[in-house]
């Protein structure tokens, strides 16, 4: 149960568990960004959900091609913003009216008017922090080790390589049929990737 949850969350960050025999997935290389987008569309259409694409630069329209929904970072940001708004209000009220009330030219100990700038600034600060924290919480970065690094071809991903990786943990994954699909949609090469625990030796 707990393991399933961990696997599910990991998969949402593209951290997949290898199969029993250590097979992590299939890695296919494509010629250019356009082909990679079409490949992602085809793989998504074929029913695969646990796959990811890698390219040297962001590709416009890739989210849609991969069938990814709207990012949830916005919700994190909104939550952060509302927290900041409430925190600013409480800070102003507690310090002004409860903990250390002072009479300054007859003004009320707490009023919304002069508190708005504080509430506003904390809203912005917490919204930004919420966005950054949410981004890191959901994208699985930093990730110093990735089984994809076991592929020699994959090194060109920071230069001129466009890759698509289908995880072995996908429910539709099958060595033969996945290989066939990737080749059919124009992969330059398809290789099997293993995630072997070599520290055990």
């Amino acid at each position: 149960m707990l393991n399933d949850l961990r696997e599910y969350i990991g998969a949402s960050m593209s951290i997949y568990s290898p199969r029993e025999d250590g097979l992590y997935g299939m890695l296919a290389e494509f010629r250019n960004p356009g082909e990679l987008v079409h490949a992602a569309e085809a793989v998504h259409k074929a029913g695969y959900r646990r796959f990811d694409t890698h390219s040297p630069f962001p590709i416009h329209g890739m989210d849609k091609a991969m069938g990814l929904g709207n990012s949830l970072v916005g919700a994190w940001s909104l939550g952060g913003g509302l927290t900041g708004l409430a925190a600013g209000y409480l800070l102003q009220w507690w310090t002004g009216a409860v903990d250390y009330p002072m009479d300054i030219s007859g003004k009320p100990a707490f009023a919304v008017e002069p508190s708005v700038p504080v509430m506003f600034e904390l809203t912005i600060l917490f919204a930004a922090l919420g966005a950054v924290i949410g981004m890191f919480a959901m994208n699985g970065l930093p990730r110093p080790y990735n089984p994809l690094f076991n592929s020699e071809r994959f090194a060109s991903v920071t230069d001129d390589g466009f890759f698509l990786h289908v995880a072995a943990s996908d429910k539709n994954f099958d060595v033969a049929s996945t290989d066939e699909l990737l080749r059919k949609i124009g992969a330059l090469s398809v290789e099997k990737l293993y995630d072997l625990d070599d520290t055990a030796e």
Binding site: S105, K107, E113, P114, V116, P117
Partner: peptide, 12 residues
């Protein structure tokens, strides 16, 4: 709008 209001509120 708020900048105008707050400064006038504060200046009183």
């Amino acid at each position: 709008a708020f900048s105008q209001y707050m400064l006038i509120w504060y200046g009183n």
